[in-house]
Design a protein around this nucleic acid. Sequence first.
DNA 1: TCTAATTTCTACAACATGTAGAACTACTAG
DNA 2: CTAGTAGTTCTACATGTTGTAGAAATTAGA
Lengths: 125, 125
Amino acid sequence: MATLGDLERAVMDLLWEHQEAITANILRDLLSQRPSGDDGATESRPLAVTTVLTVLSRLEKKGLVERERASRPHRYRAVTSRADHTAELMLEVLGSATDREAVLARFIGTVSDGEAETLRKLLGR
Amino acid sequence: MATLGDLERAVMDLLWEHQEAITANILRDLLSQRPSGDDGATESRPLAVTTVLTVLSRLEKKGLVERERASRPHRYRAVTSRADHTAELMLEVLGSATDREAVLARFIGTVSDGEAETLRKLLGR
DNA sequence: TCTAATTTCTACAACATGTAGAACTACTAG
DNA sequence: CTAGTAGTTCTACATGTTGTAGAAATTAGA
């Protein structure tokens, strides 16, 4: 596993926003609306559907997406929630480090106060 | 920023193990000793020093390594500790997610009991 | 059966990384 | 001061990933 490219990430974000499985065409439309880069360069690229399909296939191969082959225009959905995915990634980064505690210490030291509070609750005193 | 390649990672690991700055030659030697992949394929590759130098330059460009140009065979050292680096990465992954709390919840749920205990201590009271 | 929408194949450019030879630089021994 | 050698920087290439999409194959309905 590892990191996603910009487009892959954009697609995943959209899939994560939708509870229901959606088609490549819908994704293409949604993608053309959102302002990819930050620069205000007046609108831009209408991606080809094949492009979206390629990306979806790759994401499927990576195990992040699954598709309903049954429905005619295949419908795609994220396998895990964004939160789960992110948490997994964090754990992957934390990894088998021998210094996990040291890492956690640094980590905690950087988290906002509010989040620290949240963590305390989660850890159930 | 982002992920490191296998060799880059190996180099960083060595630099992190050494408090003192070390030369490319020393790194090359250390690298040839350690068992890169997992397979027990009877020993292997003695990397060229230039290879190590290239990797070091790239790591320097990425801001992970800094070198003492003063000493003749340049000496390299990691800019941050492994723990800091890892913690930074974790934060980067956690990122500006709108669902940070949800992510943290999943994260906490997966951490070992011992670590949970550590976290509690770190969070004070 | 023909066709139009869909999906899969194939392709290529751009970038990252592993890998290292060639060329250039800078000390040190004469 | 000068040549040789250790060390550094350039240049290069193979492989893998990602963005991007046309061409070819497939499929369901008119």
